[in-house]
Every structure is written in structure tokens, then in C-alpha cells.
Simulated scan of single mutants.
Amino acid sequence: MLGLSGIGNLFAPPLSPQAVYKWLSAGVPAGRVLAVCEATGWQVTPHVLRPDIYPNPSDGLPASGGGANLHGTNNPDREAA
């Protein structure tokens, strides 16, 4: 699994390990959730990191055909807000 430096290096410009460490208490920023989950091979889900914006366990996970649905749902029939 990625350490603080490894997670920070996923972003451009890279984030310091201290900045990533702050996420432990403040929460992962909404715009970074999917990138962190993808980097962990989806072993950590958006629901685990931010249940406030991904309330269902399957929200934000990649659809069976590929990339993550950025609207927080895997339901293709749901309209974006």
C-alpha cells in the first residue's frame, strides 16, 4: 500500500507527506478522493474516505466497463445534478 509520500506523488505538483497526513484528521479533499482510491487499486473506496459525499458503499466505484462515475453513483440512469 502507498505511504504518505507515495500518495502525495500522485498529484501534480506533488503534495508533501505533511499535507497528506492532514487528511487523516481533516478528511481527503473531495477532488482527490477518486485519485486516491484508484491509486490503491480500489482497495480503499470513496465511501470509506468520504461517506458524506459517497453515502452508499458502491458510490464512485468504476462501472463494469471502466472509469469511475464522477457523479457519485454507478447508476447510468441517474441524471447529474
Results as ranks from 00 to 15, higher is better:
residue 24 L to S: 13
residue 56 N to L: 11
residue 46 P to H: 01
residue 69 N to S: 12
residue 81 A to H: 12
residue 16 S to T: 13
residue 12 A to I: 11
residue 49 L to C: 04
residue 59 D to L: 00
residue 26 A to T: 13
residue 80 A to Q: 11
residue 28 V to F: 06
residue 35 A to F: 00
residue 1 M to I: 15
residue 6 G to W: 12
residue 41 G to T: 04
residue 4 L to D: 07
residue 81 A to I: 10
residue 38 E to D: 14
residue 69 N to L: 04
residue 43 Q to F: 06
residue 9 N to T: 06
residue 44 V to H: 06
residue 26 A to F: 12
residue 10 L to S: 13
residue 76 P to Y: 01
residue 7 I to Y: 09
residue 27 G to K: 06
residue 24 L to G: 14
residue 50 R to H: 10
residue 18 Q to G: 12
residue 30 A to C: 04
residue 34 L to Y: 00
residue 18 Q to M: 13
residue 33 V to M: 02
residue 33 V to N: 03
residue 66 G to R: 03
residue 44 V to Q: 05
residue 27 G to M: 07
residue 67 G to Y: 02
residue 34 L to H: 09
residue 18 Q to K: 14
residue 43 Q to T: 10
residue 62 P to T: 00
residue 71 H to Y: 10
residue 81 A to G: 13
residue 58 S to E: 09
residue 21 Y to F: 13
residue 4 L to T: 09
residue 65 G to L: 05
residue 8 G to I: 14
residue 35 A to E: 11
residue 33 V to K: 04
residue 34 L to V: 08
residue 9 N to M: 11
residue 74 N to S: 14
residue 53 I to P: 01
residue 65 G to E: 14
residue 62 P to A: 02
residue 63 A to Q: 05
residue 70 L to S: 08
residue 59 D to A: 10
residue 4 L to C: 05
residue 10 L to P: 15
residue 64 S to N: 07
residue 2 L to M: 08
residue 24 L to Q: 08
residue 17 P to F: 15
residue 76 P to W: 04
